[in-house]
Design a protein around this nucleic acid. Structure first.
Length: 109
DNA sequence: CCCCTGACGACGC
DNA sequence: AGCGTCGCCAGGG
């Protein structure tokens, strides 16, 4: 957002809006925040996400639908488990029908 | 204050 | 089409 709140805070707010059973990408979030080129920062922010409640970081994957950040979960399989629990099929660390489950933050506008 | 790192993404070869 | 590089930018050492 263009608010004065910290970039991280904004990221968390957006992630919290991700509906259950849906996923989005770091880039999409970055774009929504107006910093499309800073997708890395979104991922960086997710590092602290685990310290906060209601921040489903497992619903955030890269633009390929790959669970790039799964290694940051404990255990790593947790990310996939949570997603499958929500009805998302994962195959070889990749979300199946990614586009079908993709949720674009911009669509809430 | 300089240097390095990092859950990404776009582009170049 | 696959791999390498660069850009981006905040935090931490």
């Amino acid at each position: 957002m263009t608010t004065k709140t910290s970039f991280f805070q904004d990221v968390y707010e957006v992630v919290r809006l991700i509906p259950e059973g849906r996923v989005t990408s770091y880039g999409a979030i970055a774009e929504f925040l107006g910093t499309k080129k800073s997708a890395r920062m979104v991922g960086w922010a997710m590092n602290q996400a685990h310290t906060l409640p209601d921040v489903p970081a497992h619903r955030v994957v890269n633009r390929n639908g790959v669970l790039t950040g799964k290694h940051h979960f404990v255990p790593p399989e947790k990310m996939q488990q949570l997603l499958e629990k929500e009805g998302i099929n994962i195959k070889n660390d990749q979300v199946q029908d990614f586009q079908k489950h993709f949720w674009n933050p911009n669509q809430i506008l």
